[in-house]
Computed example of a mutant assay.
Amino acid sequence: MRMLTRLETADSLDPVSDKLQEAVAALVRPRRVRDWLHGTWLGHPLHPVLVQAPVGAFVCAAVLDLIPGRSRSATTLIAAGTASAAPAVAAGLLDWSEMTKDRRRVGLVHAGANLAALGLYAGSLLARFRGDTTRGKALAFAGLSVAGLGAYLGGHLAYAQGAGTNQAAPEIARIPPGWTPMGSLASLPDGRPVVRNVGEVPVLIYRLGDRVTAMIERCAHESGPLGKGDVVGEGSEACVVCPWHGSTFRLTDGAVVHGPAASSQPVLPTRVRAGQVEIRQP
C-alpha cells in the first residue's frame, strides 16, 4: 500500500502523462466517437466490458497450455486475445485522459504493464508460429503474470481511487429519507436550474411549469459544479453542461447525453404540496 501511495504522488510521471493526455485529446476529437468509447450509450464505462475478451482468452489459453496436446487451441486463443485488446486500449486511454493527476499516474503504470503483457503475448505467438512451443508457453505465462499486475493497478484505480465510478452517487446517502422542503414553487425560475442545499449537499433543481426535477449537483464524472455549468437546449430537452470536462445531462431526468460521464446524474424524488417543493432520498 505504501508503494501505491508513492505512485499516486509520483509527480515525476506528470511530464509523460501530460504529453500522452494531449496526444489522446488530439487524436480522438469527434464527440460521437468519444461518447462511444466512454460508454455513455451503455450506462457505465465501456473499458471494463471490453477487457473481458482479451483477459478471458489469455486465462483460457494458460489453462490449455497446461493440458498436453492443446497448444494449438491455446495459440488460437492468444491470437484472439491480442487482436481484441485494441478497442479495450482505446477506451481505457480515453477514460484515463479525463482523470485527475493522481489517478493518471497510477493509470499510466497500469497501461504500461498491460502493454508489456501484450508484447509478451505477441512474442509468444511469434515463437509458436516458428515451432518453439516451449518458449511460446513461457512468454505467455510471463504475459499473464504482468497482466495480473496491470489488473491489480486497475482494481486500485476503480475501488481505491474511484476512477470510473459515479462520483455523485455517495451524496444520495446524505439526503434525508423523509420529505424535505426546498422552498415554494413560485420562487423557482421557470426553465432555469438553481442550486439549493440540503444540509451540506447541493441539489440542482429545475422547474418546467408545474413539473420539478431535482438531481445531485456534483457531476457524476469528477464532481464538477453543475450549478455553474451552461444550459443548452430548451424545455424538456434542456441540458446542463459540466464546466470541468463537458459532461452533459438532461435536466428533466438526469440522463447523460454526452461524456466523459458514462452514467446518468442521480435524480431525487420530488413533490409539490401546498405550493411547496419537497425532495427526499430515493
Rank of each mutant, 00 (worst) to 15 (best):
R2F: 09
L4H: 09
T5Y: 02
L7T: 08
E8P: 09
A10T: 09
D14C: 13
P15T: 12
D18M: 05
D18E: 14
K19V: 15
L20P: 00
E22M: 12
A23M: 11
A25M: 13
A26R: 05
R29L: 14
R31A: 11
R32A: 15
V33Y: 08
W36D: 10
L37D: 07
L42R: 07
H44I: 12
P45K: 13
L46E: 14
L46A: 14
A53I: 13
V55I: 15
F58H: 07
F58L: 11
V59T: 14
V59K: 00
A61F: 10
A62I: 00
V63E: 07
L64G: 04
D65K: 02
D65M: 07
I67D: 01
I67P: 01
G69N: 08
R70L: 11
S71W: 04
S73E: 09
S73P: 00
A74S: 13
A74D: 07
A74H: 04
L77Q: 03
I78Q: 03
G81I: 00
T82V: 15
A85H: 08
A86H: 02
A86F: 12
P87I: 00
V89S: 01
V89Q: 03
V89P: 01
A90P: 03
A91P: 05
G92I: 05
L94E: 05
S97C: 07
E98S: 11
T100D: 14
R105P: 06
H110T: 13
A116H: 03
A116I: 01
Y121E: 14
Y121T: 08
A122D: 07
A122V: 15
G123V: 11
A127G: 10
A127W: 06
R130G: 14
R130T: 04
D132Y: 05
T133H: 10
T134K: 15
R135C: 13
R135H: 09
A138P: 00
A138C: 06
L139H: 10
L144W: 05
L144F: 13
L149G: 09
Y152C: 15
A160M: 08
Q161G: 01
G162F: 13
G164A: 11
N166I: 01
E171H: 10
P176G: 12
P177C: 09
W179R: 11
W179I: 00
W179C: 03
M182S: 00
L185V: 00
L185S: 03
L185G: 01
A186G: 14
S187G: 11
P189M: 12
D190M: 08
G191I: 09
P193T: 06
P193K: 10
V195C: 02
N197K: 01
V198I: 10
E200M: 02
L204A: 11
R207G: 10
V212H: 02
T213M: 05
T213H: 06
A220F: 03
S223N: 13
S223L: 07
G224W: 14
L226R: 02
K228Q: 14
D230K: 13
D230Y: 05
V232S: 06
E234P: 12
E234M: 12
G235V: 11
G235C: 08
S236P: 01
A238F: 09
H245C: 08
A255C: 07
V256Q: 07
V257T: 08
A261M: 10
A261N: 06
S263H: 09
S264C: 10
L268V: 12
P269A: 14
R271G: 12
V272P: 03
V272Q: 06
G275Q: 06
V277Y: 08
V277W: 07
E278T: 03
I279W: 13
R280P: 01
